[in-house]
Simulated scan of single mutants.
Amino acid sequence: MKTITTIIALLLFVNFTQAQETNTGKTITVKINNIANNNGQILVSLNNEATFMKGKGIQNLKSTIENGSVILTFKNVEPGIYAIIAFHDENSNNQMDFETNGIPKESYGASNNDMSFGPPQFNTAKFQVRDEDVALNIKL
């Protein structure tokens, strides 16, 4: 009887912890409409200030392109300040390609769509996740 009670308690604990894990955080939905062609894929990276423009972000997604647009969703994002970087990986090599002079060969964009001269900056791309889901449109 003690073994059965222990098993039932363990199953309830596992189910309770799994339910909490799947329901934490908010979603960030990113829509990109102005993609030049359907070649390759779109790569999107969710970043905080520490990860912005420094390799992999907190969450990274990729999507094939249909009719010049994609919709991607980051799930279970905790409240905080973030920025998103997106680029059109036309040759599907999972990295941005550059000219010999350092100018990107592939189109890119960032949250808030500030496309000043030079690479995106965290301060102009940042947004806050609070107690509601977030929807963003990013232009490449």
Results as ranks from 00 to 15, higher is better:
N48C: 10
P79Y: 14
E66F: 06
N47R: 09
T22E: 10
N48G: 11
N23D: 07
N23S: 13
Q59V: 04
T73S: 06
L61E: 10
G40S: 04
N37Y: 01
V77M: 04
N38K: 02
I28Y: 03
K54Q: 14
I28F: 05
I71Q: 15
N60R: 09
I35V: 04
F74A: 01
K75N: 14
G55M: 07
T27K: 12
N33E: 08
Q20C: 02
K26Y: 13
I35A: 04
I32S: 01
N37G: 00
S63I: 00
T73C: 05
E21G: 05
F52I: 00
I32W: 02
N38Y: 04
Q20V: 02
A36Q: 13
A50E: 15
G25S: 05
L46T: 01
K62E: 12
I28D: 02
G80C: 10
F52A: 03
F74I: 02
K54S: 12
S69C: 08
L46V: 04
I35N: 04
I35S: 04
E49S: 15
N76T: 08
L43K: 15
V30K: 06
V44G: 01
N39S: 15
K31L: 05
T22H: 10
N37K: 07
T51Q: 12
K31S: 14
E66V: 14
T27D: 09
V30T: 00
K56G: 14
S45Q: 11
T27E: 13
K26A: 05
S69A: 15
T73A: 05
G57C: 05
L72P: 00
E78S: 15
N34G: 09
V70F: 08
M53Q: 14
I42F: 06
G55V: 08
P79G: 12
K54L: 11
V44K: 02
K75F: 00
I32Q: 08
I42K: 01
A50H: 14
L46N: 07
T64Y: 09
G68Q: 04
I65H: 08
T27Q: 15
V70K: 01
Q59E: 12
V77A: 06
E78T: 15
K56A: 15
N23L: 09
T24C: 07
K56R: 13
K75E: 13
G55W: 11
T73Y: 03
K31A: 04
I42M: 15
G68E: 04
S63K: 05
K62G: 02
E21I: 12
L46G: 09
T24Y: 08
G68M: 10
G25L: 01
A36D: 09
M53P: 01
T22W: 06
N39I: 02
N60F: 10
I32V: 11
G57W: 02
I42L: 13
N37S: 14
N37V: 00
N67L: 09
I58N: 09
L72F: 03
E78A: 15
G25H: 01
G80L: 11
V30M: 09
N34D: 15
K75M: 07
T64E: 13
N47A: 12
I58D: 03
N67Y: 07
V44M: 12
Q41C: 05
V70G: 00
T64H: 10
E49D: 14
S63H: 06
I58Y: 08
L61D: 02
L46H: 13
G57Y: 05
T29S: 12
V30E: 00
N39V: 00
I71W: 02
S63R: 05
V70E: 00
I58S: 03
E49W: 07
I42T: 03
K31N: 10
G80A: 08
